[in-house]
């Protein structure tokens, strides 16, 4: 297996607040990794640091063998790490088609190519097939601002996936989506990304989603990774069960004798959102 992302001793402090410390992660090609943890545990901070939005206080991030520390998001994107957002970042006053057209144009055009026409038949065809793959073709001409939340999330992820990144980081792809829609949405996303052979890291609060789509789990607690293990192992890890899952929310209640003790401090952590 090839290592695509290696994070060593990553640390981030905001004044006296430690948002991340001693983060060590190695990501192999084609892995599907779930990032779990309560609100404020450092999940989004981790994604923000890897994608260049936040500058780590110390540590090292290597992507495909080269350091990407201190690079701005645009350079990291160009190298092959892309991301979606908890709150979809799209061009709200434009149609779904125009959103993706712009994503393709920016991804494909460099140098003088920027002065070639934005719209051409070949690019339009690529946009349309992308719309098909993410099953949002029926919204092709709808304005992004009028889309249902689930479709807007799909659009956001579809835009992030345009560049066929090596690694795609999804920040809570199913937050704000109704329970009935979640699996359908994830099926579409994971199938499209599987075709592109993309390595996926996604932040998720719903353990059913984690169990179903993820092969490995990174559990965050107070800025640290408290568990890095295959899914089945991680979900029964005592630390994870105590600090992340909160026993009473989980279906398989193995070893839940001490559930009552932790219910209080963990209640409400599963459904909430976290600022991007």
């Amino acid at each position: 297996m090839t290592i695509v992302l290696e994070v060593r001793d990553l640390q981030k402090t905001f004044g006296a607040v430690v948002a991340a410390k001693d983060i060590n992660v190695t990501v192999n090609e084609h892995e599907i990794i779930g990032i779990i943890g309560a609100n404020g545990a450092g999940k989004t901070t981790f994604v923000n640091m890897v994608t260049g939005y936040l500058k780590p206080t110390s540590g090292q991030i290597e992507f495909a063998g080269r350091s990407i520390m201190g690079l701005p998001p645009r350079d990291i994107t160009t190298l092959g790490i892309s991301r979606s957002f908890q709150i979809p970042q799209v061009f709200l006053s434009e149609s779904v088609f125009d959103n993706l057209l712009m994503a393709y144009a920016i991804t494909e055009a460099t140098g003088l190519g920027l002065l070639s026409p934005l719209l051409n038949d070949a690019r339009a065809a690529r946009v349309d097939s992308h719309l098909e793959r993410y099953q949002i073709a029926q919204y092709r001409n709808a304005l992004a601002s009028t889309l249902p939340q689930g479709v807007r999330k799909l659009l956001d992820i579809a835009m992030a996936a345009v560049s066929k990144p090596t690694i795609l980081m999804l920040d809570e792809p199913t937050s704000g989506i109704s329970v009935e829609e979640k699996f359908g949405l994830m099926d579409i996303i994971m199938e499209a990304l599987r075709q592109d052979q993309t390595t996926v890291l996604f932040i998720e609060h719903d353990m059913e989603i984690v169990e179903r789509y993820v092969s490995r789990v990174l559990a965050f607690y107070q800025g640290e990774i408290i568990c890095d293990a295959p899914t089945a192992e991680a979900l029964v890890d005592p630390g994870v069960r105590e600090f992340v899952i909160g026993e009473e929310y989980h279906r398989t209640r193995t070893g839940s004798e001490n559930a009552g003790e932790n219910a209080g401090e963990n209640a409400g952590e599963n459904g909430g959102g976290e600022d991007a």
Partner: peptide
């Protein structure tokens, strides 16, 4: 009508997305 010209819209609408598309 070119990509650079059209990016006016992209920058006006969402600079974060533009950065994360690589420009």
């Amino acid at each position: 009508k070119t990509t650079l010209g059209g990016m006016s819209m992209a920058v006006r609408e969402n600079e974060i997305r533009v950065e994360y598309l690589g420009y």
